[in-house]
Design a protein around this nucleic acid. Structure first.
Lengths: 106, 106
DNA sequence: TCAAAATATCATGATATCATGATATGTCAA
DNA sequence: TTGACATATCATGATATCATGATATTTTGA
């Protein structure tokens, strides 16, 4: 039995809650939401494709992806000169959906 | 027909996306997540009750609530000396659930 | 080995967020 | 009208995030 249920009222323990908030913070950014949308809809993609689709500056995009990778939201795989990114944590997509309309039960 | 579908790939228009990201940013904070959890589980409550349950300093709690109110996540109603808060946007709860475990379809 | 393509990292200044303690406001009862 | 209770607001310094432009790294083909 988790003894922290009383203190946290059914929510995860403080340390975990901190991690969750951190991931959520990464999603709380317009461009990063668009990146998640792009990766969901088009599947995995190399950076230059995302860059073209979303019209983001290369350095900025790379940093966004890096942050999301560190948090485990996306996953990277090198293929030759390219690096392909994909969604690694479904919760990213779920949050996007329930916050952008479809996905809410009302 | 929304002509921004092409540019935004099914996501809301930039201005709206900005607002959504802003709301998400408010949820991306451990104490505010706990506040949402408290209001969900216990229903509406006066500030002093939330303060006691979550052991948050009065000023800080008041500011958290104020920010969330401005964003439309919660709603306030004065009853005598007290001000009762309640969830105003179900998406807050949905995000909490899908990010904290229960609520995701896997 | 060199050049170019694709991506990553760094440095920096601007802005936003945070926690804290102090003070102000509003409401009710005496 | 005064006092106390409940809540809100303010001021401030510390820290985090952001966008930008410059530079570095990795990989492949010539």
């Amino acid at each position: 039995m988790k003894t922290n249920s009383a203190q946290c009222g059914g929510l995860p323990a403080p340390a975990e809650l901190e991690r969750i908030a951190q991931s959520l913070k990464l999603l709380a950014h317009p461009q990063r939401l668009r990146i998640v949308g792009r990766l969901e809809r088009g599947g995995a993609a190399p950076v230059y494709a995302i860059m073209a689709d979303l019209a983001l500056p290369q350095g900025a995009l790379s940093q966004h992806l890096n942050h999301m990778k560190r948090a485990g939201l996306v996953q990277a795989e090198r293929r030759g000169k390219e690096v392909w990114y994909r969604i690694a944590d479904r919760r990213a997509v779920q949050v996007l959906h329930c916050v952008c309309g479809r996905g809410g039960k009302k």
